[in-house]
Write a protein that binds this DNA or RNA. Structure first.
Length: 501
RNA sequence: CGCGGGGUAGAGCAGCCCGGUAGCUCGUCAGGCUCAUAACCUGAAGGUCCUUGGUUCAAAUCCAAGCCCCGCAACCA
């Protein structure tokens, strides 16, 4: 029986156009989803956008649009980018959709009736300029103008009630919060008493949100709204069968929203009496050179520029192989080019080229017979045979970079093997032996392509089609002898470095 | 003394849990090959494994103290 796999990205806030960070998380989710689909798992991949809240309202105002019109304009920027990035999401949720709003209101009502929401007067420091409450520390920093103490009635969610249960849950489930250091971070955070979460905003202050069903004077706080997307999209409250089929799932998030997910969301789920997510995985950030990517520094990388220059798959490959999941990574154009050239052009693409060239020259363009393996073939075969299992295990453990490296190790080994066996020499004295070498090398390439399908869907498929093996699997030897190879342009043309001026 | 993570060749990382010749990718240098996208292969140079002290026959690995960097610290993607 196959397992199920439900993976989500955060729903992205639509106050600005998507950047490399959004693209990264989404590609990561896509790669995992594609891997699991290939394994035959019942897979569901959700992404979407978060459209309520103050910043959206303000961004709309600036453009002279209604918030809804602003959202309708921005949401397609995400969907069209995902299309260009080859994202295979099964659904795309927008929090302004009725299907979502209805469920959020239903949940608010339910939690209210269960007694986990109460009203209280809240007093705190409020920055009129920023239109939000700030902490004392922030006030001391002097970065906020027009700070004053205001009192306001608001609704609160009894997060504190679930603190002990949450601590115990995290301690008992080592795979719940990952990587480990984030888990420790949250356990440390939970050592201090939790306060309850303010989940309302008076309409006078913010109107762009989901109305609280039991008090029309308020809308709900964006996080209480947004987090629910993970279950509203898969049928919570409307399609029980679907919901039970996929929940709980894996949430991929950036480290910036760890607290909201591991504390707010989980306590909400406790209150709803639902199982907690299987895993919340917080990945790191892409740093641009030495500094964090930020609009004010003008170093925001737009994924589209890269795709246009080097192709989607190269970008996907770079992002997936360069970042060790959970740690920050450095994004520089030099780095990108280095990795592209060394892994994709020199190792992978060039191997395909030399192998197909030799098959063309000495074997009439037809994939030769496998022959009887010698020790040299046996070594490559052995590596190839366990590769699938190794990669699967690494993917299951969210070690995408290591999984990719495992595949590249086979390619490197085959380049070595080619050098040792020298089929271009062998062909002159022992044509079947040369054929045996080329079959082995080609089969390794096929296997690598099958495993890289999740990361580079287009390029991997091109390779498989060239080899006449588009629907082949992970078993060594599936490559068919006798297939005629078409001619094809270099798979990954080298990027020539422009000289710096 | 808030909590947590980390400091290993020029760069990025693995090894540390379960002590025993310090490894991978990129870069540099030399050589080889010439099937290939000036690519591929081999070899070399390059390390006080942050510091100090301890345990041990033996420490990057365990213990202690210190120095430095980075996250988190509540309503803020």
């Amino acid at each position: 029986m196959n397992a199920k796999f439900y993976v989500t990205t955060p729903i992205y806030y639509v106050n600005d156009a998507p950047h490399i960070g959004h693209a990264y998380t989404t590609i990561l989710a896509d790669v995992l989803a594609r891997f699991h689909r290939a394994l035959g798992d019942d897979t569901f991949f959700l992404t979407g956008v978060d459209e309520h809240g103050q910043k959206v309202e303000q961004a709309a105002q600036k453009r002279g649009l209604t918030p809804q019109a602003h959202c309708d304009d921005l949401a397609p920027r995400f969907t069209s980018l995902w299309k260009k990035l080859g994202i295979s999401n099964d659904d795309f949720i927008r929090t302004t959709q009725d299907r979502h709003k209805r469920i959020v209101q239903m949940i608010l009502q339910k939690v209210y009736e269960s007694g986990d929401i109460y009203q209280k007067e809240y007093e705190g420091l409020y920055s009129v300029a920023e239109e939000r409450f700030i902490t004392e520390k922030e006030a001391e920093s002097g970065q906020f103008r027009e700070v004053k103490t205001i009192k306001e009635k608001n609704y609160f969610f009894k997060m504190s009630k679930y603190q002990d249960r949450l601590i115990k849950y995290i301690e008992d489930h080592p795979n719940f919060l990952r990587p480990d250091h984030r888990r420790n971070e949250m356990l440390g955070f939970l050592r201090q008493p939790l306060t309850d979460l303010c989940i309302s905003r008076p309409k006078a202050r913010l109107s762009w949100g989901i109305e609280i069903p039991f008090d029309r004077e308020y809308v709900t706080y964006v996080w209480f709204d947004a987090l629910i997307n993970y279950i509203s999209a898969i049928g919570y409250g409307t399609d029980d069968a679907k919901f039970k089929r996929f929940w709980p799932g894996v949430h991929l998030i950036g480290k910036d929203i760890l607290t909201t997910h591991s504390i707010y969301w989980t306590t909400m789920l406790f209150s709803l009496d639902l199982p907690l997510p299987e895993t919340i995985f917080a990945h790191g950030w892409w740093l641009m050179g030495e500094s964090k990517m930020s609009k004010s520094l003008g170093n925001v990388v737009r994924p589209l520029d890269l795709i246009e220059q080097h192709g989607v798959d190269a970008v996907r490959y770079y992002l997936m192989s360069e970042m060790i999941l959970g740690q920050d990574a450095n994004f520089t154009p030099e780095n990108f080019i280095k990795r592209y050239n060394s892994d994709l052009a020199n190792d992978f693409g060039n191997l395909l080229n030399r192998v197909s060239g030799l098959i063309g020259k000495n074997h009439g363009n037809v994939i030769p017979e496998a022959g009887t393996p010698t020790e040299a073939e046996a070594a490559i075969m052995a590596q190839g045979q366990i590769l699938g299992k190794n990669v699967q295990a690494l993917i299951a453990d969210y070690k995408v970079d290591a999984a990719i490296n495992e595949v590249m190790n086979l390619i490197r080994a085959v380049n070595k093997y080619m050098e040792m066996q020298a089929p271009w020499k062998l062909a002159k004295t022992d044509l079947p032996a040369a054929g045996r070498v080329l079959y082995t090398a080609t089969e390794a390439l096929r296997l690598a392509a099958v495993l890289l399908k999740a990361v580079m869907p287009d390029k991997a498929m091109i390779v498989l089609e060239i080899l006449g093996a588009h629907d082949s699997g992970l078993t060594w030897g599936e490559l068919k002898s006798g297939v005629t190879l078409p001619s094809f342009p270099p798979l990954f043309p080298r990027i020539e470095l422009e000289k710096k001026t």
